[in-house]
Design a protein around this nucleic acid. Structure first.
Lengths: 174, 174
DNA sequence: TCCGATGTAGAATGGTTACTCTACTTGTGT
DNA sequence: ACACAAGTAGAGTAACCATTCTACATCGGA
């Protein structure tokens, strides 16, 4: 809680993550942020910007938690960040990706879609960098997205499946 | 347009697919369904049931279009239905899965989550049956979900990546 | 022919909610 | 001490929207 903006972003992220994007009223968001309505609107002048603020906070938390301080060896790094995604799902969100959820709730918003694209681009890039598989960025993204969406349905089995798929990338067959 | 209910479901699916689940008002939905408000409420007595009707229609259309009349040989069937998912994405929806979108828009709804689970269960089962890979159902689901979410970001490259991953399943490494 | 079921058209209603505004408090630098 | 920047608390407003209700049209079968 370094400054007001961080405090608000954190609260908003928590609110949207637990209640979705349609449900919470601005008054709910105010409660979650722990500030007055006036202050909330000062930093995020519309509900749409509250969504953006929440997602920016999410992006930071996600990327650091999943990708920071991975093992140096590419093989270990691969398994490690897939496991971390599983842990993330378990502790942070029961249903899929918050960015996709936000876009789904308001598909007409251009800034929202841009934020989604930026987030996924960054995720794919860091995954490729951590594992040294620069030629297989899209494959890694498919695995990550697949894991994220499948986890709510299959739990830990989804993590295992994702790992098996990723190991297969070692020996490219075509 | 065999009967009134089908006509309504089809219209609703079209409306939610193109405008998302938050945007369209019930009057928009009425226009899309092409019936009067009274009739719309007779068949789907609340907005929430309109969502369910749309998704049931979606499920039928998706499974028939992706899984019916696949080639008999497992290898060809695998490539074929992944290609079909790509075509589906291209013609039917620019952003990810409509079921996930519906749940994301209203995470509190139990019937909605049950419908999602049923849909994905069915998809995984039919994918495994078509390809003969009964032991790798979760892997197939990860690939399908990954492809569906990655397609909006990478287009045809996502289909290629999904195919490469699926071929790797031939020689299980663990 | 006429009745009842089923449809259209669209006007009320009642509740919700995003956003604004007013009045008051607090803390900090000069 | 005091001015002012930045906060809280919460009432007011204007629009929107899901749902219901009223009035009328159509038509197939007894």
């Amino acid at each position: 809680m370094t400054d007001m903006m961080s405090k608000i972003s954190e609260g908003l992220e928590r609110a949207f993550a637990s209640q979705g994007f349609a449900e919470p009223s601005v008054e709910d968001l105010r409660d979650a942020a722990g500030v007055s309505l006036r202050t909330l609107y000062k930093y995020t002048p519309s509900r749409a910007e509250m969504v953006l603020a929440a997602l920016e906070n999410r992006h930071q938390r996600y990327t650091t938690r999943v990708f920071d301080n991975l093992p140096k060896e590419p093989e270990k790094a691969l398994d490690a960040f897939l496991s971390r995604i599983g842990e993330w799902m378990e502790t942070e969100t029961s249903h899929g990706c918050l960015f996709h959820a936000a876009v789904a709730a308001d598909p007409g918003s251009l800034p929202l879609r841009q934020l989604l694209e930026h987030h996924k681009y960054e995720v794919a890039k860091r995954a490729a960098a951590a594992t040294g598989r620069f030629g297989a960025e899209t494959e890694l993204l498919v695995i990550i997205e697949g894991l994220t969406q499948t986890w709510p349905l299959r739990g830990e089995a989804a993590v295992k499946a994702a790992k098996r798929l990723s190991h297969a990338l070692r020996s490219p067959s075509s």
